[in-house]
């Protein structure tokens, strides 16, 4: 009885699926899927070659500081860094006084101790980076309806995040003539900017890095080309997304070495115990 019912149920589901398959196949042949501009022109991120890649990779402190400089001077006007506390900038190699100065240069929300009204005060190391816009509505209103995302986690919120940010920032270009010829409807709209690394090829953010030397790097640092600035800020954003990466990797190496030893011992012990037992 069970088998008869099972047979019928199996026949029903398999049959419906095969019908769906045939139906889909007919549709596939009669109306083949239309190629889209996104499919043909979207590019995967280029490899920037970061110092923190691989199991032994570490952040380059000087690069993170340069990246922070690019963030502060270029991105910070629209993009917040709301998960990051000023105190954690110590990871970048800043000392206490420098962190205090960085924090104090920014206003954070506060309550006036005398009137109780909302006000702002200078940031302290324990504070987090303040929001740029009080809420999403304000952010959308100020940016032509495109809300600039918070960048704290952007390097983990995109596939291959650090390379993605690098490619996006250095990847603005004119829309290829071939694209417009093949897909006249996909022409980059008013207020949008063509970028093959962006999922739908057109994004609202204007190219933020427009010329070499836009940010002045300190003595002994590489030349601030667009490529270099894009790379530096991407590295910085990887750090904001994964500040514990170095601790994670160094712990991991110790753990794996320990486990390898333990496993070899466990194997030898296993072989010993079974030595006289055929199995």
């Amino acid at each position: 009885m069970v088998r008869v019912l099972a047979f019928l149920v199996g026949l029903f589901f398999s049959g419906m699926l095969l019908l769906s398959f045939i139906w889909g196949g007919v549709a596939f042949v009669s109306e083949p899927p239309v190629p889209t501009a996104e499919k043909e022109f979207h590019k995967h991120p280029e490899k920037a070659g970061f110092s923190f890649e691989g199991p032994f990779g570490k952040y380059d402190r000087a690069q993170l500081q340069r990246g922070f400089q690019v963030y502060s001077e270029v991105c910070a006007a629209c993009h917040s860094l709301h998960q990051v506390a000023f105190r954690s900038l110590a990871d970048l190699g800043y000392n206490e006084a420098e962190i205090k100065a960085i924090a104090a240069a920014r206003q954070v929300p506060a309550v006036d101790p005398n009137t109780g009204e909302a006000t702002t005060r200078e940031g302290a190391p324990a504070d987090k980076f303040p929001l740029v816009y009080p809420n999403n509505v304000a952010a959308a209103a100020a940016n032509n309806n495109a809300i600039p995302p918070d960048l704290s986690l952007i390097a983990k919120a995109r596939h291959d995040g650090a390379n993605y940010v690098y490619s996006l920032l250095s990847g603005y270009q004119d829309q290829p003539a071939e694209l417009v010829r093949k897909f006249p409807d996909a022409k980059t709209g008013e207020g949008l900017h063509y970028n093959p690394y962006f999922a739908n090829l057109n994004l609202a953010m204007a190219p933020p890095l427009v010329m070499d030397g836009q940010v002045t790097y300190g003595e002994g640092q590489p030349k601030p080309t667009i490529d270099q600035m894009a790379k530096d800020v991407s590295a910085f954003l990887m750090w904001t997304a994964e500040p514990k990466m170095e601790a994670r990797k160094s712990t991991g190496i110790a753990v794996v070495i320990f486990l390898l030893f333990a496993t070899v011992l466990a194997y030898m012990s296993y072989q010993n115990i079974w030595a006289n037992k055929k199995h």
Binding site: F258, L259, F261, A262, S269
Partner: peptide, 15 residues
């Protein structure tokens, strides 16, 4: 043999 078994168990303990 005993030594290896003891070593394996000790490693597990340390872990």
């Amino acid at each position: 043999r005993d030594f290896i078994n003891i070593a394996a168990v000790s490693f597990a303990g340390v872990g």
